[in-house]
Amino acid sequence: METELTPSQSLQLIQDMVQQAKQSFQKSNFYFLLWGVLFALAGVVDHLLQRAGVQMHWVIWPAMGVIGGLVSGIHGAREGKRQGVMTWMDRVQMWLWGSYTITLVLLIVAAVSWGRDPNPFVLLLTGLPTFVTGALIRFRPLMFGGVLFWMIGLLSLFVLREYSSLVFAFALVAGYLIPGILLKQHEDGLRPA
């Protein structure tokens, strides 16, 4: 049997359902925490390896990238299945971070082939998706994180190369890790288990 609706009931129902759908986008704090920890660690390890005179010190960066990529992929696939929905917000973020990753790899290749330290450019680029994601999900600490990436990226152009990895690690803590922790508290509070 079909339930008949009055116009005001219809409007209320539409509003309720749209509101429900709005709250269904995937939580993104995991990715900021993961990449924040991995690359802050990579920066510190790279610095220590350089000081110890290890030639292949840079290997830590692609190694962390592969680990982060695998963990992110598995987590994303699991969350997607569990959630059972793909929102427009999820779609926009997926393309934003996907195109960022491609640009990032190309930028690193370009910087290395020019004999330049890629870290400042990576930080300047990372400010963009971080800031945009913060604006999309209306979370100011993440927008502030994006601004910090731009500022530290600019400053790191004038830092001695031997300290570049440490500055990079600091930027990851300030731009990803701290906003990520705040985002986790925010997202967990929004939707309790």
């Binding site: 359902m17 709005k22 059972g84 929905v85």
Partner: peptide, 10 residues
Amino acid sequence: SLLVSVERAD
């Protein structure tokens, strides 16, 4: 109302 707000839903 739900489907108009998302791209795909199970």
